[in-house]
């Protein structure tokens, strides 16, 4: 076996790419080249990427069908908003708090329910997500169904960019580590994995907690951009929206999740001028894409420079 050399040039190159990307967008925001409308959609896009990538860790890599992702988003959003608006914590602390609170919720929910398999797990997570929403609706401290409004706009491009990069770093590195192989083995064949001595419960819970935590982060960023959070926003239909991105991108492909999140955000915005038929077109696109590309846009492959070369070069 070859010793793994750290490719500093590659890391530097990637870091440079990120810096350039960040600065370009930052520049166009501060010079108002990017209108407010595009900024809002950029924000939605970043939040959707975090949501899709975090759910793809649970659904795509670990193979555990979870339909309660919006619930974790709600936990994160409410935690962060309470911390900034009621308890006067700084935004960074609120983000960290959201990450941990949602992760904790993921742990509390994951430990008992991850024993369930397939569709039973799906309905259990869906039910728990709905329970979170109903409970929030009945807590007066957070104004029940009216939700909390007047949230200061603390989410900036820098925070969004940081959030996306952090999510990708954690998820990609986790998947490519020995933990990641254990996680994928659970998806491929749980019994075989167990026979190989892998503590499948541990890895399932691990993936679930991390996925939930980042959904919480996305919720916190959401709350501090869109001025208001209310329980109704985080219902099971929101969970479905996130699931659509993951499956559309391809189960087990991080880049697929990112591409699908971008695609869905652009699609939603592009359909705005057709208010009467936007949902019909959206539904048709969903059905047609799935029929012609059931494995999702990327399958379980990742998009990289090699892929680019392969597509361009024909055979390789």
């Amino acid at each position: 076996m070859q010793t793994k050399k750290i490719k500093w040039t590659r890391i530097l190159l990637e870091a440079a790419f990120l810096v350039v990307l960040f600065s370009l967008v930052q520049y166009s925001i501060s010079t108002h080249m990017l209108s407010q409308y595009y900024q809002i959609n950029l924000t939605s896009m970043c939040i959707n990427i975090i949501l899709a990538v975090s759910l793809s860790l649970i659904n795509g890599f670990t193979g555990q069908l979870s339909l309660g992702h919006a619930g974790f988003m709600a936990v994160g959003a409410y935690t962060a908003v309470i911390m900034t608006t009621k308890l006067d914590y700084p935004f960074l602390a609120a983000l960290v708090g959201a990450l941990f609170a949602a992760g904790l919720a993921g742990f509390v929910i994951g430990v008992p329910t991850l024993r369930l398999k397939g569709d039973y797990l799906a309905i259990a997570t869906l039910a728990l997500g709905e329970i979170i929403r109903v409970v929030l609706q009945n807590i007066d401290y957070v104004n029940g169904p009216a939700g909390i409004s007047g949230i200061p706009k603390l989410t900036t491009w820098a925070w969004l960019f940081g959030g996306v990069v952090l999510t990708l770093l954690v998820v990609v590195n986790l998947v490519n580590s020995s933990y990641g192989r254990a996680i994928i083995s659970v998806r491929e064949d749980e019994i075989a994995a167990e026979l190989m001595g892998i503590n499948t419960t541990k890895y399932k819970v691990l993936a679930f907690v991390i996925g939930a935590g980042f959904a919480g982060l996305a919720g916190a960023l959401y709350g501090h951009y869109f001025y208001i959070i209310k329980p109704e926003t985080f219902n099971f239909l929101k969970s479905f929206d996130i699931l659509v991105m993951v499956v559309l991108g391809g189960l087990g492909s991080t880049t697929g999740a990112v591409i699908a999140a971008i695609f869905i955000t652009i699609l939603t915005a592009a359909l705005q001028p057709f208010p009467e038929i936007r949902m019909i077109i959206y539904a048709l696109i969903l059905i047609v894409v799935m029929i012609y590309r059931p494995q999702g846009l990327m399958g379980n492959k990742e998009f990289s420079r090699q892929t680019l070369g392969r597509i361009w070069g024909g055979r390789q």
Binding site: Q36, K230, T268, Q272
Partner: peptide, 21 residues
């Protein structure tokens, strides 16, 4: 100019920005 906000506050914000343009 009619736009649909999908019964969501975030979409309402996005639609408003589009209308402003």
């Amino acid at each position: 100019i009619v736009r649909d906000c999908k019964s969501l506050p975030d979409e309402a914000m996005s639609v408003s920005a589009a209308l402003v343009d």
